[in-house]
Design a protein around this nucleic acid. Structure first.
Length: 495
RNA sequence: GGCUCCAUCGUCUAAUGGUUUAGGACGCCGGGUUCUCAGUCCGGUAAUAGGGGUUCGACUCCCCUUGGAGCUGCCA
C-alpha cells in the first residue's frame, strides 16, 4: 500500500455537501498517510444539473478546508482532463471496444416504452428488468433505425456470484441474476455514472475507491464493467452515511449542509475537519482532539465504523469553541474581523487603526465565542456609540432599582481614579459597593446594564479597562439620561 | 416488492469470547470558582433492539424477528 492513489469525485449539481467533505477527507487522509496522491475529479455528466458555479463552490470549499488535491481542476496532472465532460473521447474508445467485442449493444427503445414496461412490471409485482428487445434486432431492423437516437447497454451474460472485499465491511456478495442489460451510455452520448466512474478510475490509476455506502449497490455493476473490459479491480471501501437528527439522510431541513454555510456561520476548518474525522472513525477510547498531522498519522480504514452516524451540532460547537480558544490571539482577531466588518460594527480602516483595542476585546470575549460570528452579538456594545437596554435588563434592573441615583454616585467617584488600572478600578468599585444599600451582585448588574445594556457580559473591570475612563463615564451619564428621559424608574418607590 | 448494508448511553464511539459493577467524549443534571453569562475544575445521569442457538463463558460467533438505511434511473 505504498503509492496509493485515492480520489474524491463530486458532481457539481449543488453546493459542497458536508457528507461529501467527509468522504473527501478520508480519501485525503489515506493518501497523505501513505504518501500517495489525492485526485479531485468533477463528475459533470449530468448536463441538466451540472453548473460552473457549483464547480467553483466545490473547489473553494476544498481549499478553505485545506483538502488540497495533487491532481485535478486548476492544476491538471498526468491523467487529465479531470472533468468528465472533457473526457468523452476516452470513454468512446472503451465503448467501441465493448461494441466490437459484442459485449454491449445499441438500444433504440424510447423512454416512454421503457416506462410502460416498468409500470407493467410493478403491477404484476415482478422486479423490472429490461426485456432485451434491442439485443435481438435483425440487421434490416437495425438498418431501419439507424438514424434514431439510442442508448448503449451492457450485455449481462453472467450467472455467478459477484464477491468483493470491502475494506470497511468485509465480504459483500451479489448475484448477477439481479442485473439486467443496464445502460452505460445515455442517448445524449454521455456515459452513465457507473460506466464513467470505472473508466475514470482505471485511466487515472485509482487503486483505492473510497466513497459513501450509497454506492455499495453500484459496486457489482461496476465490477461487471471492469470484467467486460478485462480490467483489474481496485480496492473498495464504503463509508457509512451521515444522518440528520431524525436519522434520515442529512439534508437542508436538518440545518446547514453546505461547507459555504458552515464557513459563513463561523466554523473553523480545523474544527470541522476534526469533527468529521471523528464522525465514523475513532482512534482509541479517549482522544477527541486531533491535529491534522495526527489525523494523517493515525487514520486507518480498519477503524472506520460500519454504521451510519447522526450529525450533531452540539459536539461540533464544542470543538469549534475549543479550537477558537486555542488560537493565537492575533489569529483570532484576523478571523473575527470579517464578521465585524460585515455586520458594520466597524470599518476596515477603523480595524487597522485600533488593532490593539481589537485584540483586547477579542481576548476578553474569547471563551464565549462558539462561532466566529458570535463576536457580533457578544461584542457589539464595544463598538456602538450608545447602548440600548434589553427588555430583560429593563425589567430586572432598570425598573427594579433606583439606577439613576446609583449611577450618579458612581459618577462622583470615578474622577478620583487617577490611573485607570485594574487595581484602582476594583478598589473604587468595591468601596462603592460596600457603601451602598444594595447587594453586591445587584450592584454589579446595574453597572453591567449601564455599560453594555445587557444582563450578560464579560468581566466588568475588563470592559471598563478597554472602554477607558472617558467612555465609561459617558456610558453612566448616557444611562442616566435615558432613564430620566423615558422616566424609567421602579414602579414601587418604597422598593 | 427484490437485492444489499447496518444495529452499544439522547448523540459520536471504546471494549475484536473471559482483564467489565460495559469505558471515554458531547449533551443534560448537580457542585466549586465568580459581579452576570461563558470558560474552567469536580461529581452524577444514561446503552449492548428482541428471541433462539454455539460455548465452561458472549456486546463480541451463527440463525430468526424487528427496526433503520441504500440501490432497484438515459442522477451521481
Amino acid at each position: 500500500m505504498s503509492h496509493i492513489r485515492t480520489r474524491f469525485a463530486p458532481s457539481p449539481t449543488g453546493h459542497l455537501h458536508i457528507g461529501g467533505v467527509r468522504t473527501a477527507l478520508y480519501n485525503w487522509l489515506l493518501s497523505r498517510k501513505n504518501k500517495g496522491k489525492f485526485i479531485l475529479r468533477i463528475e459533470d455528466t449530468d448536463l441538466e444539473r451540472s453548473t460552473e458555479e457549483s464547480v467553483r463552490a466545490i473547489l473553494d470549499g476544498m481549499k478553505w478546508l485545506g483538502l488540497l488535491w495533487d491532481e485535478g481542476p486548476e492544476i491538471g496532472g498526468p491523467f487529465g482532463p479531470y472533468k468528465q465532460s472533457e473526457r468523452l473521447m476516452i470513454y468512446q474508445s472503451f465503448i467501441d471496444q465493448l461494441l466490437k467485442e459484442n459485449k454491449a449493444y445499441k438500444c433504440y427503445c424510447s423512454q416512454d416504452e421503457i416506462n410502460k414496461k416498468k409500470v407493467k412490471a410493478k403491477k404484476a409485482k415482478i422486479p423490472y428488468q429490461y426485456d432485451r428487445t434491442c439485443r435481438h434486432l435483425t440487421p434490416p431492423e437495425l438498418e431501419k433505425r439507424k438514424k434514431d437516437s439510442f442508448t448503449i447497454r451492457l450485455k449481462m451474460d453472467w450467472d455467478e456470484e459477484i464477491i468483493f472485499n470491502d475494506l470497511v465491511r468485509g465480504e459483500v456478495k451479489f448475484h448477477t441474476s439481479q442485473f439486467d442489460d443496464f445502460i452505460i451510455v445515455k442517448s445524449d452520448g454521455y456515459p452513465v455514472y457507473n460506466f464513467a466512474v470505472v473508466i475514470d478510475d482505471v485511466t487515472m490509476k485509482i487503486d483505492h475507491v473510497i466513497r459513501g455506502d450509497d454506492h455499495i449497490s453500484n459496486t457489482p455493476r461496476q465490477i461487471l464493467i471492469y470484467k467486460a473490459l478485462g480490467l483489474s479491480l481496485p480496492e473498495f471501501a464504503h463509508l457509512p452515511m451521515i444522518l440528520g437528527e431524525d436519522k434520515s439522510r442529512l439534508s437542508k431541513r436538518h440545518g446547514a449542509t453546505s461547507v459555504q454555510q458552515f464557513r459563513e456561520m463561523g466554523y473553523l476548518p480545523d474544527a470541522l475537519i476534526n469533527y468529521l474525522a471523528r464522525l465514523g472513525w475513532s482512534y482509541d477510547d479517549s482522544q477527541e482532539i486531533f491535529s491534522r498531522e495526527e489525523l494523517v498519522h493515525k487514520f486507518s480504514l480498519e477503524k472506520v465504523s460500519k454504521n451510519s452516524a447522526v450529525f450533531n451540532f452540539d459536539k461540533l460547537n464544542w470543538l469549534n469553541n475549543y479550537y477558537i480558544q486555542h488560537l493565537p490571539l492575533q489569529e483570532k482577531v484576523r478571523l473575527c474581523l470579517p464578521f465585524l466588518i460585515k455586520s458594520k460594527l466597524l470599518t476596515e480602516k477603523q480595524a487597522d487603526q485600533n488593532q490593539d483595542v481589537l485584540e483586547k476585546i477579542i481576548d476578553l470575549l474569547g471563551p464565549r465565542i462558539i462561532l466566529l460570528s458570535d463576536i457580533i452579538h457578544l461584542g457589539d456594545f464595544f463598538f456602538k456609540n450608545r447602548v440600548e437596554f434589553t427588555k430583560e435588563a429593563l425589567d430586572r434592573i432598570i425598573l427594579k432599582f433606583n439606577c439613576s441615583s446609583l449611577y450618579a454616585q458612581i459618577l462622583q467617584s470615578l474622577p478620583s481614579i487617577i490611573s485607570w488600572t485594574k487595581e484602582e478600578i476594583i478598589k473604587t468599585f468595591e468601596e462603592l459597593s460596600n457603601r451602598m444599600d444594595i447587594k453586591k451582585k445587584d450592584f454589579f448588574q446595574t453597572i453591567r446594564v449601564a455599560l453594555t445594556g445587557s444582563l450578560t457580559s464579560p468581566d466588568l473591570i475588563g470592559i471598563m479597562l478597554i472602554l477607558g475612563k472617558e467612555k465609561t463615564i459617558s456610558r453612566f451619564q448616557q444611562a442616566i439620561n435615558a432613564i430620566d428621559k423615558n422616566n424609567l424608574r421602579p414602579k414601587n418607590p418604597t422598593g
